[in-house]
Design a protein around this nucleic acid. Structure first.
Lengths: 218, 218
DNA sequence: ATATTAATTGAACGGTGTTCAGTAAATGAT
DNA sequence: ATCATTTACTGAACACCGTTCAATTAATAT
């Protein structure tokens, strides 16, 4: 069970090879073309061997998704950093959408499998859970800066966590709909930036009229 | 080829029975359990017979999705109408999210299959296309009221169409993430209403500072 | 009653995920 | 270095899948 012995290093490499070939098959031939036999072919093993390294196909897909989330996390920070915090959160959102565009099968897989798999533990609060999601925490950190510098307003019920969640929901909706319903339409990032600016304006201090009571309906 | 002759009425009924049993299988046993043989079983036909009514499995799924979109459209208008236009658009969004919660397999299927199928025609503009989508037009009509009464501001580049699209993206992101990443977390609709209020505030007239140029980045 | 058309099916093909007994290879102990 | 034991690997099989097609039955038109 030593993780650094040659044996586990070797099995680790094979696990990685399985994940890598799965990613490549999905990328080049689509998710539908992904099969155990196809993977076994690619890494020169028999189909049965795959089950030495993953308990089933679902586990392989889960590993691919995990890989995808770490790629997403790095993509979120992959842009020139020397901009003001308002633009930083906006560009972070743009990066999210860019990632979805650049890796459509990946992105759709990640957020479809999330429905099948148990990313959620009912015992644990949503906030607790999301705080362990690196991709979300990148967004949250950006929002926290806005809150700290007083660029957005918070209330006891609606703090930086809720604002960050809302930001995620906004960019996720844009990403999802451009990938599904508007798949063949060209993407105008300047329009997307206007949308994200409008979103941000909704949380900014302005002389807005008193908020309608959100519990008018049940 | 007469549509009203007994023969085509019968084939029409069988088509409907196929769709209906597909919907029920998805609902009760999940999308993974949907198979031609399973459907054939349910309607007391042989698997081969199904192909007399649908060219393949994908066509059946497409029909199920179509059914889903009409259900969604009616759900969007299914709430007390005697409220002011600002609340109307908000409650319309809430209905969207409620539909997703009430029909998770349906909803996820509709917007995952959208990636596989061709809802989009590259020849046609996005706006033209969406204008033929009833569900979107329900949202658009609500936004148009806000624009007409001057509750939200429009610019030449960002008109009622773009605002409606943004509204769709916002509620779609909320719906999708609650179904996938936060699947087991309880939903607080009062928080969601605050989010939708904030979204709307972003498009309302206020003394907000001049908008940052959206083309600072390419 | 007969000819024609449509509807239905059983059997098959090639694919899938997965299991398992059996074989080969690598490891640990002597 | 030899042997015993654990680990890795595989071929064959099972039960499923979507789909096709020749053959058969039912419905319609003449």
């Amino acid at each position: 069970m030593d993780i650094d012995k040659p044996r586990s290093r070797r099995t680790g490499r094979i696990r990685q090879a399985i994940i890598k070939s799965a990613v490549e098959i999905i990328h080049h031939e689509g998710f539908a073309a992904l099969s155990i036999r196809r993977i076994a072919d690619a890494i020169d093993y028999s189909p049965a061997s795959i089950y030495e390294y993953f308990s089933n196909k679902e586990a392989i897909i889960a590993a691919v998704c995990e890989e995808g989330f770490t790629r997403l996390t790095t993509a979120l920070t992959d842009y020139p950093p020397q901009i003001d915090s308002r633009m930083a959160v906006r560009e972070c959102g743009v990066q999210y959408i860019r990632f979805a565009q650049a890796n459509p099968d990946y992105f759709l897989l990640m957020f479809s499998m999330a429905a099948t798999q148990v990313y959620s533990n009912p015992e644990e609060s949503l906030e607790h859970e999301l705080r362990r999601s690196p991709a979300f925490m990148v967004i949250h950190a950006h929002i926290q800066v806005l809150v700290d510098e007083g660029s957005v307003f918070v209330t006891p019920q609606y703090g930086s966590f809720q604002i960050a969640l809302s930001a995620w929901q906004m960019v996720h909706g844009i990403a999802m709909l451009t990938l599904t319903m508007q798949r063949n339409a060209p993407i105008d990032y300047s329009v997307i930036r206007m949308t994200l600016d409008a979103w941000q304006r909704g949380f900014s201090y302005t002389e807005h009229e008193p908020q309608k009571n959100a519990s008018d309906f049940q």
